[in-house]
Design a protein around this nucleic acid. Structure first.
Lengths: 184, 184
DNA sequence: GACTGAACCGGACACGGTGTCCGGTTGCAC
DNA sequence: GTGCAACCGGACACCGTGTCCGGTTCAGTC
């Protein structure tokens, strides 16, 4: 991995900043490669050099916000990190994720709508974490349960519930209950 | 509501038959209005007259298959229909839905990917049903729980799990366990 | 501080899908 | 058989995509 050229780095910054603004401003599905290029003052070819499509740009932006949580899950203090019983860790994870989603729904919707969600590295991480907790708790079929436990965190579901008037806090409470009874 | 003209009915048949074949044959996201029109031997204008987009065609096809289950939920024998305790009814619903999804993933993916899922009438029906069961079981926050309980049935999730090797039967078992502990 | 090759830039291009529009056709009622 | 309304379908303009290549900028070398 060779060092990044100065002009390339400059453009990457411009692109990410412009994209972040666009995603925050309007419907994520209306954000197009063309609009990002124009907003960043950059040619379309430049965009495609680094990102194959809009979703991958949203994913790059989202990744930054998710890194911190991922770190805490691996080696932070309990109940998020190791040390607490599985159901408490799962509940803490749920609460943290609803908070994260609450802040960045736009990005999440731009990055992970539909099947693409499962192709991202982040999903793999969340899945591994939940799977480990399920195993630790001796549930019947951890592998089948993992994706089931993650399904309510899909950006689409979250956005719909919030639009419906279910606050992130209420959702977190419901998920905590789910964690409590299912992974004990 | 006036009677449908004979040529119109003929074309509707042709369109639905051609669409069903296309959805079954290839990636639902690759099915386009244009391809349906060509396969049906019909002009594009004719298509747009009745369906605003591809998803609505898939929804129309899916609706037919879902009607039977909806009828059973309302007035069929227990445990699917009224009469059984909530957790048993929910488990039966889960099993029926995984079966339905297993048969018609293509259509479901074409119809309900992403946010569109929540706009369909079918989702409203499933939601009302699950909500009623949750209320009957005196859970803490039925409204927040309803969409959470339905999230694992999203076509995307189902398709991903099946591709991963989780059979519909295993999934149904996991969901049954979920129903048992959460809605008692 | 000039040279050089490699990395990078960005606009032009061809393509494919969308949704609309309207002249022509078909079916139905009287 | 006649008239009208509903219906048909292809042509059209538009938009976003992804690629390609001539030109530019950078960084290391002497």
């Amino acid at each position: 991995m060779t060092k990044e050229r100065a002009d390339a780095a400059r453009n990457r910054e411009k692109v990410l900043a412009a994209a972040a603004e666009l995603f925050a401003a309007k419907d994520p599905r209306a954000v197009t490669m063309d609009s990002i290029a124009r907003a960043a003052g950059v040619g379309r070819g430049t965009l495609y050099r680094r990102y194959p499509d809009v979703a991958s740009i949203a994913t790059a932006l989202l990744d930054e916000h998710e890194k911190a949580l991922q770190h805490e899950l691996l080696q932070g203090p309990p109940p998020l990190g190791p040390g607490a019983p599985p159901h408490e860790r799962l509940a803490a994870f749920y609460t943290a994720m609803t908070g994260l989603l609450d802040q960045h729904v736009h990005l999440a919707l731009g990055a992970e709508t539909g099947a693409r969600r499962y192709a991202t590295g982040a999903y793999g991480f969340w899945r591994a974490h939940v799977l480990a907790l399920a195993r630790e708790a001796d549930v019947a079929d951890p592998d089948a349960l993992a994706d089931t436990l993650l399904a309510p965190l899909a950006p689409d579901v979250f956005a719909y519930q919030r639009e419906r008037g279910v606050s992130p806090a209420r959702l977190a409470a419901a998920l905590t209950e789910l964690a409590r009874v299912l992974v004990r």
